[in-house]
Computed example of a mutant assay.
Amino acid sequence: MTNCAKAFVADTPADVTPITAEEASKLHDRAGVEFVDPRPVEAIAATTGIIPGARTISIAEIEAGTLPPAFDDRSIHVVTSCQAGPMGARAAVAFAELGFARVSYVDGGTEAWLKAGLPTRR
């Protein structure tokens, strides 16, 4: 886990789990799993791209609890990923604080996803 990511999850009592890109790829396309990228769309396009199928929901929207209807069910598994990890960890904590039972973030973010040889969408 990156030091920046640790700072976001260290003080939360919620069950927020860092997972590797490889672990995240095994969850990809499973029913009941939603991938979320909290970065601005411009940042996604200018850097790593986005994990295919991930939803873009800003960190502000997540922290405010302004989520699309697909997130009405708090039992889904939410997997967050940003470029390198810290914002993904922050988003994961916010989802946990909103009452989601299963929340993970990709340790190392979408950069780790790419390093694992997995595709992104631009």
Rank of each mutant, 00 (worst) to 15 (best):
E23F: 10
A94L: 08
W113F: 03
P69I: 03
A101L: 11
P52L: 01
D15Y: 10
I51P: 00
A46F: 09
E22Q: 15
I76S: 03
F35E: 00
I59D: 11
R39E: 12
P86I: 06
K26L: 14
K6R: 13
A89N: 03
G65K: 01
P69S: 12
A116V: 03
A43T: 12
A60W: 05
S75Q: 15
V79H: 03
V16N: 01
T120R: 00
A14Y: 10
P38M: 06
H77P: 00
A14S: 12
C4F: 11
V16I: 15
S81C: 09
P13R: 14
A89I: 07
E22H: 10
A5T: 11
A14W: 03
S75N: 13
I62F: 02
V16M: 07
P13A: 13
T80A: 11
R55S: 08
T120W: 00
N3T: 13
K115V: 14
L67R: 02
D29Q: 09
F100S: 04
D73W: 02
A54L: 01
P86C: 02
A64V: 05
P18T: 08
E34W: 14
T12G: 02
T80G: 05
I57H: 05
I62R: 07
R30F: 09
A10L: 13
P13M: 15
M1A: 14
D29F: 12
P69N: 12
A84M: 13
F100M: 01
P18E: 09
E97Q: 10
A46H: 10
L27S: 06
D107H: 09
E22T: 15
E61W: 02
V41A: 14
E22K: 13
T12N: 06
P119M: 05
E97R: 09
P86W: 01
G88L: 02
A92T: 08
F71G: 05
A96G: 15
G99I: 03
H77N: 10
A84N: 08
A31K: 15
